[in-house]
Design a protein around this nucleic acid. Structure first.
Lengths: 244, 244
DNA sequence: CGGTACGTTGAGTCATATCAACCATAGTGG
DNA sequence: CCACTATGGTTGATATGACTCAACGTACCG
């Protein structure tokens, strides 16, 4: 065996992040662990890399651990009756996914797919459970996280049930601005297909296309393929009727 | 002062339930507490009674504790942009409400209103937090509860986003059957206004009325004012496309 | 008896989904 | 190199589910 192929060289360059520095700089939930616990975590974790389109886990399966995102973007979605995806949330640096199924001890109710090439750590369930048992402050932070997500889910339910597609699309754009930010040219720092946008908003792809081009006519956004430039945040807020 | 009016007599008859028996028979989350903790809970709790229409708490407010339901039914809802209620969940015997805001340390994102006269205990936040800190098994159960609710919220989001009003109404009926059961004449053990049904499904009152009478024509249900008799569960399942 | 809340029905409108066609781009394989 | 295919984006035409508005009936309550 020889280890000097182009690919192997590349592999060797990869730097597996340490949990202590990562959790601090990403502000992940693990910053509430004791140094000993972080060390244990660092030992147990399994560092992995995925490319756009890869699937981290799929609904209906039993999950033996959860993922902590170090870089990249992942979409978490649920597949509806006719196979249409409903995007529930995104995960980026510092976020953890699949913890819901681990903690509720249920089968995964969502799937996770890579949107932007990512590096994640897989962490076995047992270690999470053991932290909860030995570190109450950490348990409380996890509860805080879960309950916060629950609040967001409640808002989402109300929005989808009551707002029009137009209002929701504007709101989703603002949400993306808030979550991923804009680059120095005001382009959204996340690139989604029109279909993916539709699967967040809960509408048809064609509707997203039509409404986006309306927003363009109204000088709210500029479109350059998948790159979306945000021109008028206030205008989008007005359309979306956000104030909760 | 004289204490022998009709009302006072009635008051005296009221039996304040003990947490240990109540938690066992209702299967509430408190059954995971130690005997000492249950005793502390029993001491700290504040027993209250509410009538239909009463409000337990309102969104936007800071909450100093949460509620454990002993009897009756409560609706938990969120008020949308135009004042329309979106019902998020119901609470009945053994359920706890408002724990989300307590644990996430956020303002209440929902309101709670009595649907069927109820008896509840109000429990100060501090005692819940202290249990989490001293009883890891209990913390884990709370996490399980929150994560389970999160899973239900995800399903709800997908349904509202993808299913038709007709499908959702059928699904809501089945959900109510499952949650509240049927009496010996197959009538639903919960009585809601058409508007409330609409506020679960996420539609207009008139749409609920029209669809219910369609279901009646199709011999799926029988209607007697607010009492709904379920005739054909299989038929409703077929309409609702449930299999998750 | 008037008032209020709820339920019902009809008619008209509109937002959105659906269906279909077409274009652009990139990757594939012969 | 070209044909082939797949994927995603766009636009137009059409259909329709669901909302809105309005009127009216019903029941209960003080």
């Amino acid at each position: 065996m020889h280890y000097n192929s182009r690919d192997d060289m590349k592999q060797q360059e990869i730097h597996v992040p340490l949990c202590d520095s990562c959790s601090l700089e990403s502000g992940s939930i693990f910053k509430y662990l004791t140094p000993d616990e972080v060390e244990a975590l660092n030992f147990e974790k399994d560092f992995r890399q995925y490319k756009r389109g890869d699937i981290l886990y799929q609904e209906g399966n039993r999950i033996s651990g959860f993922f902590c995102v170090n870089s990249g973007i992942i979409k978490v979605f649920k597949t509806g009756f006719d196979g249409k995806e409903q995007i529930i949330r995104f995960a980026k640096k510092g976020d953890i996914i699949a913890y819901r199924s681990v903690l509720s001890n249920e089968l995964a109710c969502t799937s996770a797919k890579v949107i932007e090439d990512c590096q994640v750590c897989f962490i076995p369930s047992e270690i999470l459970i053991s932290f909860i048992k030995t570190n109450p402050a950490y348990a409380l932070e996890l509860l805080k996280l879960a309950c916060h997500e629950l609040g967001e889910a409640n808002s989402f339910i109300t929005d989808i049930a009551q707002k029009t597609v137009r209002e929701r699309l504007a709101e989703v754009l603002l949400f993306l601005v808030n979550d991923f930010g804009l680059d120095d040219e005001y382009f959204l720092n996340i690139s989604l297909t029109r279909e993916e946008m539709a699967n967040i908003v809960g509408t048809a792809t064609e509707s997203v296309i039509r409404l986006l081009s309306e927003f363009k006519s109204d000088k709210l956004v500029e479109l350059n393929g998948r790159k979306i430039k945000i021109l008028n945040t206030k205008g989008l807020e007005k359309i979306s009727n956000v104030f909760n």
